Amino acid sequence: MAKGKVGKTVGSLGDYLKEQRVGARLSLRQLADQAGVSNPYLSQIERGLRKPSAEVLQQIAKALRISAEQLYIRAGILSPDDGVGGSVELAILSDTGLTERQKQSLLDVYASFLALNAADGADDATPAGAENDAEGTAPITTEIDPDSDNRVTNEG
């Protein structure tokens, strides 16, 4: 069932890309050259047969002079419901120090945390860690003593 959703997302991405390319009066070959991807690969993206990476989408967006964020949303990388505009996701996607696999892993972990917090928020309105403060226990902090390079633990 999830595969059908991905196919539908990619298909709508492909339709959107083709629409933008035709509107920009670019041939498939011209856009492929400008985006730095192969002509067959771009064709497969437009036909919904391939799901491009965030990096490829960014290159295509630059060549088309359109918002990369819109392509990320259409590709299912970003959610339009992110409220803040997906600033965490955009930061991950724009980080040149990460590989595409690392970016996708971080996005998956972040999405799972959001889903977990949404589920927890529905069950309990108490912030995490508030139980300890309510019982009178102080948080434990660990600091590094700059003079000795030893860790100092404060309890209370």
Rank of each mutant, 00 (worst) to 15 (best):
V22A: 09
L64M: 12
I144V: 15
L106C: 08
Q59K: 03
G4C: 00
L116A: 13
K5P: 00
S79M: 04
L26T: 03
A134Y: 13
G36C: 08
E69G: 06
S105I: 13
A115W: 03
L116D: 10
L13I: 04
Y110E: 10
G136F: 06
G23L: 05
L57E: 06
Q59A: 06
A24R: 14
Q70H: 00
A134K: 11
N154V: 13
A75G: 10
A91R: 05
N117V: 09
G76K: 08
S94L: 13
V152H: 11
I66A: 03
A54S: 13
G23D: 11
Q30H: 12
P52Q: 09
T137D: 08
G7D: 06
K51R: 15
A128Q: 13
S43D: 01
A118C: 08
E69K: 03
Q59Y: 01
L31P: 03
Q102G: 06
K18E: 05
G7Q: 07
G83H: 14
E155F: 03
P80R: 12
I73N: 01
Q59S: 06
N132W: 09
P146D: 11
I144G: 02
T126W: 07
A119F: 02
S87I: 13
S148I: 11
N117W: 11
G129L: 07
Y41D: 02
A54I: 01
G4L: 10
L42N: 04
V10A: 05
L114R: 15
L78F: 01
S94M: 14
L93C: 03
L78M: 15
L42Q: 01
I92H: 11
E155W: 02
A122T: 14
L106S: 10
K8Q: 12
G129V: 09
S38M: 02
V37N: 07
R74G: 02
S79C: 08
V84M: 12
G85K: 06
A68T: 08
S27D: 07
V56Q: 00
D81L: 12
S112H: 04
G48M: 01
A91T: 09
Y41V: 04
G85T: 12
G36P: 05
S67V: 06
M1Y: 00
S53K: 00
D81K: 13
I140P: 00
G136E: 05
I92T: 10
D124R: 13
E55S: 09
E131A: 15
K5Q: 07
D145R: 02
D108C: 01
L13T: 04
T96K: 14
T137Q: 04
L71D: 00
S79H: 06
E19D: 11
Q102R: 12
A68E: 07
G7C: 04
K3N: 11
I77L: 15
E89V: 01
S87G: 10
A91F: 07
V88T: 15
V6M: 08
Y41A: 02
A118S: 15
R151I: 07
D81Q: 14
T153Q: 15
N132P: 02
